[in-house]
Amino acid sequence: MQIELTINDKAVKWEVANDEFLADTLRSHGFLSVKKACDTSCCGLCTVWMDGKSMLSCSVLSLRAHGKKITTIEGLPKEAEEFAQILSAEGAEQCGFCSPGFIMSVLAMKNELVNPTEEEIIHYLTGNLCRCTGYMGQLRAIKIYLGVA
């Protein structure tokens, strides 16, 4: 079935299968920042935005993207890079595999929460797992990014 959507501000028409999930569709169209790591909707690596809201693209049926605005990290070069610079300066990207999804969550949080406390930051990002860093460096980076350090 054909869907029409906006991907990173560009209108596209894609052919998708009924049981195809958005993460796979995005990867097949070259949006390789979208990573999959759990198969059970709970690691957060595949996080993209749908109409500005963070979603697990591995669990969104592709045809539900019809008429929606999808954003991946490739579509936010400036905003994402600003935070990625800080994250990397902390060394908190480590293997980097979880970083794109994590950054999409951080940017969504910045849009959604005003002056979040440390507890609110941790709570908002709980759905993004990371096995390398132990999360402390990510938190340091976020605090610098939000100017709450």
Partner: peptide
């Protein structure tokens, strides 16, 4: 609802 996985999960 707050402890169910994460925001992106609860959005879906």
């Amino acid at each position: 609802l707050r402890d169910i996985i994460g925001v992106q999960f609860r959005n879906g």
